[in-house]
Design a binder for these strands. Structure first.
Length: 154
DNA sequence: GCCAACGTTGGC
DNA sequence: GCCAACGTTGGC
């Protein structure tokens, strides 16, 4: 039984096209430094489906779909690297604080389904993404929400 | 670039 | 354990 998720990324930093051009269209989702988001990654299973969301850009919204391809989380080594912008001395190989999963590009949506459009759909009004002040970069999506959004694609 | 909302840190 | 100060996120 696979689950559904949404993961945010700033397209200026890492866009869906960037993921698509990675070797094997696969990359590790590094840099998560929020406990709630990390805990959601711990719940991920290989084969789970994920919406790729572009945030902090001109038209924020869902732009594509990817799949979880790692069996479980593993240490986010960027936390160990003093030269990384994601460096966190509180996470060490002996005592790992931050973890990540691997994701693989599946496809782009035919069009970007914007945040504004999502807000207008009554079925989605309880969606976590749309709650006021929500800044979580990894969010669970229900089956119903997933299917509703896919129908919007047309 | 502004700023509201939220998470984290650290002094007490 | 409280909470002020600070940093970050992300829509606008």
């Amino acid at each position: 039984m696979s689950a559904y998720w949404l993961m945010k990324s700033e397209p200026d930093a890492f866009s869906i096209d960037d993921l698509k051009s990675c070797p094997n269209k696969t990359d590790s989702w590094d840099g998560i430094r929020n406990y709630q988001a990390r805990n959601f990654m711990r719940d991920m299973k290989k084969g789970d489906l994920v919406f790729f969301y572009h945030s902090n850009c001109k038209v924020p919204g869902i732009v594509g779909i990817m799949t979880v391809v790692s069996n479980e989380v593993y240490p986010d080594h960027t936390a160990f690297d003093p030269n990384s912008k994601y460096y966190d001395p509180k996470s060490t190989p002996e005592k790992v604080r931050w973890e990540m999963v691997d994701v693989k590009y599946k496809r782009k949506l035919k069009r970007c389904i914007s945040l504004q459009e999502l807000k207008e759909i009554p079925t989605l009004k309880d969606m976590r993404l749309l709650q006021k002040g929500n800044r979580l970069s990894i969010i669970p999506v229900s089956k119903k929400e997933w299917e509703t959004i896919l129908k919007l694609e047309g």
